[in-house]
Design a binder for these strands. Sequence first.
DNA 1: TTTTGGTCCTGGATGC
DNA 2: TGCATCCAGGACCAAA
Length: 293
Amino acid sequence: MPELPEVEVVRRGLGPFLTGTRVGNVRVLHERAVRRNGGDFSGELTGAEILHVSRRGKYLWLVTNNDMAVVIHLGMSGQLRIRTKHDAEAPEVARHPHLRLRFTLTDSREEATFLDFLDQRTFGGLHLSPLVRVQREKIPQSILHIARDPLDPYFSFEQFSQKLRAKRTEVKRALLDQSLISGVGNIYADEALWRSRLHGNFQAHQLSGVMVEELVNNVKEVMHEALEQGGTSFDSLYVNVNGESGYFSRNLNVYGRESEPCDRCGFSIERLKFMNRSSFYCPSCQSIEKVSA
DNA sequence: TTTTGGTCCTGGATGC
DNA sequence: TGCATCCAGGACCAAA
């Protein structure tokens, strides 16, 4: 499932192909892919030039020359794939059951390139949003509520710590709250909590400043490691723009490892139902009894 | 205002 | 073999 490292891998992959191209045509094959878009998605985009590709948390956006952004969220199973004309016309690609949207991109130097949006579970989608200036940068209006992610150079630890410690909720739920800190999903939340020896159900307002600092450092660390290995792939649902999988799943300490021994203490890893999803943790290392320092 | 829990959605895996 | 059910989870929304 694409979380921050996976989305960043996609962003890096898209840049060289998309920068400087123009949108020639947009074919929407599944209306749900553009459900968040109010107006005519294809019409408003045709002819626009793509200037660069940006990201905040799990959101990607293509900045166009008319001060608009094509905001993309991959959801659980979204993929962006770059296709050459030859690839795009192959029957297994053109009639792929999960192909939801296709951009035809033109370039003054070469023949058309295609950008395909595939999404098995249709939780992902694209929409247009005007860019608005906030302090040092321009971001899409529709994602103003999304907090800076921990890899953002302007991420403020003090601000995050203050907000987190004011929350009367569990620390894992707070980590998944994109308006508090963005980019953290179920996998990296579990991994960072394990590294911090924190139980996901520990109350956020009981965390000390030192505990928050350690947690943030572990979130950053696990994300950097995942990024270096091209992200986490369990199956074919996450691939980069060339269709290649990442390798970080081999380095996971708790996520998806129910009943296996903890790498730190050997205790059996348990799975807990939390917020309609699974939480993996070591009941020995990550005791709920932990007392705030 | 903040917190909590339900819903959306698809297809692979599993059980009968 | 065929059918039913479970499961995965990010974002959003309504209820408390």
